[in-house]
């Protein structure tokens, strides 16, 4: 396996498997963190002061520490402190631990964006809904939600593109995502050793995927331009 032509399919196959893991982590994080972020943003606005303080404290801790440390803590803490490795050793266990760390981390970031988005909607929208006899739930879902989405879409898009790249942090607890897969060929894997190019080639994966996301998010923003 000396020539590039021989190596290419083997490397691409390995990178595809790694990138599948990257994608899985990306989507699971989004699906978990968007709704959880909304719930947390309500918590951080709660009129019940102890809840509000607790939620704000958690947000402060999560946003104030590196995601990498959070990954290490979530995966290793149960084993180190309670002598009970709840996650298991294999890839599935590592993935679940990673996904939980990512969902917690990103939902805190999202919650702050949501909070800003909700606070930015004029109070007159609430009042107009109230005097028209709408319930609070109806006012949120039928009146404010879409206005909020329009406001938060640009900062959320930023976070989403960052998330794609942040998935590479998962390798700290040996989740075998695409960069891990690329790096394996530097040390030696599947008969290919000392190859540098697969590592750099992973950048293409990120670039293409982020390109697709940029187009989709841009389309979405455009779609919401029909009102001001």
């Amino acid at each position: 396996m000396d020539t590039f032509v021989e190596q290419f399919p083997v490397v691409i196959n390995a990178l595809n498997i790694g990138f599948l893991q990257t994608l899985k982590l990306f989507f699971v994080t989004l699906i978990g963190a968007l709704p959880l972020g909304l719930i947390i943003s309500f918590g951080s606005k709660s009129k019940f002061v102890p809840l509000k303080l607790l939620v704000r404290f958690i947000i402060w801790v999560v946003r104030g520490t590196p995601l990498m440390i959070q990954l290490l803590i979530i995966y290793y803490f149960p084993g180190l402190v309670f002598h009970n490795n709840v996650w298991g050793s294999n890839e599935t266990g590592r993935f679940i631990a990673t996904a939980i760390a990512f969902i917690i981390n990103y939902s805190c970031y999202f919650s702050e964006i949501f909070r800003g988005g909700i606070n930015g909607i004029p109070v007159g929208q609430d009042e107009a809904g109230l005097v028209l006899g709408m319930t609070k739930k109806e006012i949120f879902f039928k009146v404010k939600l879409l206005q909020m989405i329009k406001r938060i879409l640009p900062p959320i898009s930023n976070e989403i593109l960052t998330l794609v790249k942040d998935t590479s942090l998962a390798r700290i607890i040996a989740l075998q995502e695409v960069i891990w897969a690329g790096q394996a060929f530097m040390k030696g894997s599947q008969g290919i050793s000392g190859e540098i190019w697969p590592l750099f080639f992973t950048a293409i994966y990120y670039l293409i995927f982020n390109g697709i996301l940029t187009v989709i998010l841009g389309k979405l923003e455009q779609k919401l331009e029909y009102f001001k």
């Binding site: 290490l72 290793y76 084993g79 298991g88 050793s89 294999n90 390798r171 700290i172 040996a174």
Partner: peptide, 20 residues
């Protein structure tokens, strides 16, 4: 036997945490 790929920097952590 079950082989698990680890991040080499974390080998002592993995042992102590019981994941290997």
């Amino acid at each position: 036997v079950e082989f698990v790929e680890i991040e080499w920097d974390n080998k002592a952590l993995e042992l102590e945490a019981g994941s290997i």
